[in-house]
Simulated scan of single mutants.
Amino acid sequence: MRVLIVEDEVKITQALNFLFSKQKINVDIANDGDEGLLLAKKDIYDVIVLDIMLPGTNGIEILKTMRRAGNKTPVIMLTAKDTIDDRVFGLEQGADDYLVKPFATKELIARVKALSRRKNTEFIGEIYEFEGIKYDVKNYLLYVDNCEFKIPLKEAMLMEMFIKKPKQVFTREQIIDRIWGLESDILESNIEIYVHHLRKRLNHTGAKIETVRGVGYMLKEK
C-alpha cells in the first residue's frame, strides 16, 4: 500500500510516517498544499490523508481538483473543526472519510486500511479477484487455474497496482513513482521486463495487460 499524507504539522507527519512504516505501508509526505496537489495528481496512491488547513492550496481545493480530473483515490480529510457542517461540506466535495484532530493514530491507520479496500474488484480478506485470477497482496501470491505462484517483490507491486484498479491506464511515470519511488532514475525498459513476466503468468486467464501506445499499461479483460 502507498499512502500520501498532506499535513503541515511536521511533528504529526513524522509520527505518522514512523507508525505507517511499522505497518509496512509506504508513505509520501507533503507539508504544504501546493506540493500535495502535485503529488496527488500523479494518481499513484491507495489512500490520501488530507488536512484542510494548509499553506498554499487548501485541502478542499486539492480534493476538488482531484475529483474534477477523475482521480477516485479514497481521501480521508483531517480537520481541527468539529462541526457537522464542515464535515458534510468535505464529504459533498468528494471526501470518503473524515477525522477530527486530535485523533488516535490507531484509528487513522484502521481507516486507511479500510478505504484501501474500496476498489472496483472483488475483495476477500487480503485477496483481490479479476477475470479468473486471484492475488494475495499480503503474501505476493498469484493464483491461476488453482495453481499458486509466489512472485518477486517488484513484479508483485506491479500486479497489486493493476489488480486494485483494473481498466485504469497507468503511465510509465506513475509506475516508476509507485514502485521505485519519486526520486528514482530507473529506466522505462525495466518496467517492460516486469510487464513481460506478468503477461506470461496471465496467458491462460481471462485477463491481460494491454499496452496503451505512448502512455503506459492497463489490466483488462481479454
Rank of each mutant, 00 (worst) to 15 (best):
D97C: 10
I176F: 00
H197V: 04
R118G: 00
L219G: 07
E188L: 11
L142F: 11
E9K: 14
L202K: 05
K134V: 03
T65E: 04
L187T: 13
I12F: 10
K165A: 10
N190V: 12
A156C: 03
K64Y: 05
K113C: 03
K81C: 02
R178Y: 12
Y135I: 05
G90L: 02
T211G: 00
I209L: 06
R67K: 14
E107G: 07
D97N: 12
E92C: 05
R2I: 10
K220L: 13
E188Q: 09
I127M: 06
T171A: 08
I163R: 02
L202G: 08
T105Q: 02
N146S: 15
L187D: 15
K138F: 03
V88E: 07
T79P: 00
M161P: 01
R117N: 12
I179E: 01
S21P: 03
D82Y: 00
K164Q: 11
S116T: 09
A156N: 05
E129H: 12
N17E: 14
F162S: 11
G90H: 01
T211C: 03
E92M: 13
Y194S: 11
K113F: 06
V6S: 07
N146W: 00
R117I: 01
E129S: 14
F103E: 09
G181W: 00
R172P: 01
A156M: 02
L182S: 15
I109W: 00
K22A: 08
E221H: 03
I127A: 07
G216E: 08
I29F: 06
G181L: 03
M157S: 05
G206M: 13
I191P: 02
K113A: 08
L39W: 08
K72I: 06
